[in-house]
């Protein structure tokens, strides 16, 4: 269910993992209350740094998507937040699909569209949404 992150993307691996978990929640592969794989077994399986897995889980907990129960492991949060994340992602997907369709209609290639998105995201990240 969780597949290997791409280390050369320039995107931190822990972020890629977080995205995968959220995507799994959104598609229903992971239900609220389900247990996530242990840090060490997952690190061994994906052959990535255990610290990275730990960081991803911590950030997911911080965002409320996941609960870390001491000694027992990480569990998908069985509350509205997790569902809200899943819902937001689904809504977001619709928005993105529509935007891409419109940009393609204007004659932009997929690569151009991708760069537009990345540049915009970078702008937001670096300047805290100044361009917004």
């Amino acid at each position: 269910m969780l597949f290997r992150p791409n280390p050369s993307l320039g995107v931190p691996i822990y972020l890629q993992l977080m995205e995968q978990v959220k995507h799994a929640i959104e598609t229903g592969a992971l239900q609220p209350g389900d247990q996530l794989p242990g840090i060490r077994p997952l690190a061994e399986e994906l052959v990535i740094n255990p610290n990275t897995v730990a960081k991803a889980y911590r950030e997911l907990e911080h965002e409320g998507v996941v609960e870390l129960r001491h000694g027992a492991g990480a569990f998908v949060a069985g509350n509205a937040r997790a569902r809200k994340v899943a819902d937001s992602l689904r809504a977001g997907q619709a928005t993105v699909a529509a935007a891409i369709a419109r940009l393609r209609a204007r004659g932009l290639t997929d690569d151009e569209i991708r760069r537009l998105f990345e540049a915009e995201l970078e702008g937001r990240r670096n300047t805290g949404g100044r361009n917004g």
């Binding site: 280390p7 050369s8 840090i39 060490r40 690190a43 061994e44 052959v47 990535i48 740094n49 255990p50 610290n51 990275t52």
Partner: peptide, 27 residues
């Protein structure tokens, strides 16, 4: 290497030309 760091209180210091390997497991 990854399994070692995970289960023990260990540090790994390695030199490598394989940048892909470094990207994969180094923090």
């Amino acid at each position: 290497l990854v399994s070692h760091v995970g289960s023990e209180e260990m540090t790994v210091f390695f030199s490598s030309h394989q940048i892909a390997d470094v990207e994969q497991i180094a923090d």
